[in-house]
Design a protein around this nucleic acid. Sequence first.
DNA 1: GCATCGTCTGACAGCGTTGTCATATCCAGT
DNA 2: ACTGGATATGACAACGCTGTCAGACGATGC
Lengths: 333, 333
Amino acid sequence: MSDVAAAAGVSLKTVSRVVNAEGYVSTDTVAAVKAAIEQLGFRRNDAARQLRQGTAATIGLIFEDQSDPFYSTLARAVEDVALAHGSLLLIASSNGDPAHSQTIVDAFTSRGVDGLIVAPAAGTEPGLLQREAAAGRAIVFVDRPVPGVDADTVLADNVGGAAAATAHLVANGHRRIAFFGDDPGVFTATERLAGYSRALREAGLEPDDRLVRLAAPTADGLDDVIGGVLDQTDPPTALITGNNRWSIRMLRHLKAHASRAPLAFVGFDDFELADVLDPAVTVVAQAPAEMGRIAAELLFRRVGGAEEPIECIRIPPRLIVRGSGELPGPALA
Amino acid sequence: MSDVAAAAGVSLKTVSRVVNAEGYVSTDTVAAVKAAIEQLGFRRNDAARQLRQGTAATIGLIFEDQSDPFYSTLARAVEDVALAHGSLLLIASSNGDPAHSQTIVDAFTSRGVDGLIVAPAAGTEPGLLQREAAAGRAIVFVDRPVPGVDADTVLADNVGGAAAATAHLVANGHRRIAFFGDDPGVFTATERLAGYSRALREAGLEPDDRLVRLAAPTADGLDDVIGGVLDQTDPPTALITGNNRWSIRMLRHLKAHASRAPLAFVGFDDFELADVLDPAVTVVAQAPAEMGRIAAELLFRRVGGAEEPIECIRIPPRLIVRGSGELPGPALA
DNA sequence: GCATCGTCTGACAGCGTTGTCATATCCAGT
DNA sequence: ACTGGATATGACAACGCTGTCAGACGATGC
């Protein structure tokens, strides 16, 4: 910048004024400075700016895995909002490891990010995040909360969505409905299981442990786990998968074991090609893009200094009927 | 940091030495400083560090759309390499707009990123990037090159892959093979089309313009475009799609027009559920994770100051035979 | 006993910006 | 002519850190 100042024959501060469009600079001077900037290929050093101003114009996004389409869609929406606020986006995957997640939070905050959007790993301790929140750093949780941290949170209505999926299968005549969800430590898995159980009871059906399995969809040996449920005596006639990873995993299993009698199927969370499969897969669609957008807007409101009370927003999912969930069950057959 | 120094009763520089594990500090002093750090919740300000040292420990990744699974998989691999080098990852989507892409490059370089991995938008001018490269900023292109910029590049062997796909269909008895690819401005689309044409000629077949369509897979009115090719007199018996977006688009179309005689189908680029569809989709699988990893490793070698000559690495894709491409054509029927 | 070396510590400057304050000029209003 | 405000510019310090240099101390070697 001092080079530009010298080239334009003005002071450092005047260049700074031009670069930041502060006004109170004569049009001639502006022209001269801009010419010098152009000629020297000058670009403002944002590290210095950040040091001086204390704002990084950057936010951080942390989730389990950026190659998961749920999260990459969410990330895209967050990015768009960040862009609209002139901010950049730091992204890191926690791999579901709370310790690694802490490291990322540390690295992000050291970088001075203005705010954090976090889909916390199962088992995340509130300590570090609560210290950050208390210190005034804007934080928004998405998809999953962290109890003990005073921060806005954007969640899907997991209970309602899973209940809707279950009720839908019940309405189509199913009485024995299996549920395959993520690890029990995962917030959404527990909520969705609760919704499933609630809907069963509301339908006068007794939840049956033999029809429920909770495990990471990336775990080994899932074919046996699934087979153990689907091939038992008095087997289910319908099933629900608790997230898109599980849906994919299940579809692969069902294809490999096609000799089995067809089962009605509702997936939690929409996924690409669900409409192209045969039968097309009925899902409870979350709105990852909307969740990302809302979380980011909330974040920037906090970054801007909003002092409203902490919010917890629930995004209602939407049942998309495509065929797989409408296979009639015994009560209708 | 000065607070820590005061609390520990040592100088600023000593705290700095402890924080950076420089050594030459007595164990007692280290303990005292660490205690003070812990107690005050001190965290190094990386903006100041960056200003002083000139390194951001951050790299930037730019591609068309982070919700595209090809790119999100690639991004994940880049992230892992960055992590191993103690770097963070800034991500931004260009939406395929070269002007916006420039803005991002500007924003990233202002932030002082140590390097850039760019999947350039079609029509990207070399100017800005070449200036950056010449100024010594590490740049690696991935998926697509930018002619006129002296930077390492990691590409798929698009010609070879498309030729393999075409030859595979020919070997299965097809003579009229359609090709649907991305916008002609897109590097990979052109290369893949070239591979398709080459393989046809090598098989003694004359490429037929009526069988080729290039358009963005997100464009409107594609059903008509596709129908125009597939429903012509003397229609194709097989088709190739030039990227995963086109494959999805095509599958949706084919499902909606199921009355048509079945066509053999090979997709360029693998996609989730390709193995679950019926018939399972034969693809030429790129290796986005490997491309990301290699690009990132190349980048960090440059960031580390490697002076090796510019490299252009071609990653060979792999034909994965699943069923849709083996539907026998007229020459075998 | 003195030079030498390794270890430990601190003072200070400077990275490139921008906020604050001071100064200068000009024009309108009285 | 004088005041006051708007406009235009610059000097300077400070943001928090680290590289450089220098000093102090004890151990070692001759």
